[in-house]
């Protein structure tokens, strides 16, 4: 499912699986990470990739806000309780975690990743880490065949102090490449509007 990928991705975003010399900044409890993204979605049979850009925010224990600014304004709010999809300000879709098998477990995996405990990830993935001169790379291969719960073939993360690039490969050649930039660690909780969005998601 979508959520699964996103959460796993996030788990890696915040603290990559490898503890190579260049440790990414660790997110303190109560803090949050935000920044910009550019996503290139390559779909087999499509001449050009689907490109979107926007901002993201991830707060341990609270969830994620993925704000797409172009080509259309929409946002997705993902928490342990579920997922909300907005188009502009209008709620277009709300899914409770009850409807998404495995979401709670993956949310827990995310929390574990934040705390530096990678066993949670290693249960579902074979994690291979490599350090390099200009940073690190981690390749996550699902232990089970791609399924509705874990619908991808591999995830490759690269980064330095933060995750800077993620590639999500699916069977059949489809692939999402996401570039992260303008990272900023915020001390203390996100602002009230974001907190409100996070608290409402899925309920």
């Amino acid at each position: 499912m979508t959520m699964t990928r996103v959460l796993l991705l996030l788990a890696c975003l915040i603290r990559p699986a490898d503890a190579a010399p260049e440790m990414p900044d660790r997110l303190e409890p109560g803090a949050f990470l935000e920044g910009r993204f550019r996503q290139e979605r390559v779909l087999a049979g499509l001449e050009r990739p689907l490109v979107s850009e926007g901002r993201f925010l991830v707060a341990p224990g609270l969830g994620l806000i993925w704000r797409t600014e172009t080509p259309l304004s929409s946002s997705m709010v993902l928490t342990g309780a579920g997922m909300d999809q907005y188009v502009g300000e209008r709620l277009a879709m709300r899914l409770s975690a009850d409807r998404l098998p495995g979401l709670a477990r993956l949310h827990a995996a995310l929390a574990a990743a934040m705390a530096g405990e990678f066993q949670a990830l290693e249960r579902d993935f074979d994690v291979r880490q490599e350090g390099s001169a200009d940073g690190w790379q981690a390749r996550l291969i699902p232990r089970a065949a791609p399924s509705a719960t874990l619908p991808f073939a591999a995830i490759v993360l690269r980064g330095h102090r933060h995750v800077e690039q993620a590639e999500i490969h699916r069977d059949g050649g489809d692939m999402d490449r996401i570039l992260f930039s303008a990272h900023r660690i915020g001390k203390g909780p996100p602002d009230a509007a974001d907190l409100e969005l996070l608290s409402r998601a899925g309920r």
Binding site: M1, Q39, A44, P151
Partner: peptide
């Protein structure tokens, strides 16, 4: 459209 361009797409092409 929000799903097609959003984070994590379930559907393949």
């Amino acid at each position: 459209l929000a799903q097609i361009f959003g984070l994590g797409l379930v559907a393949g092409q």
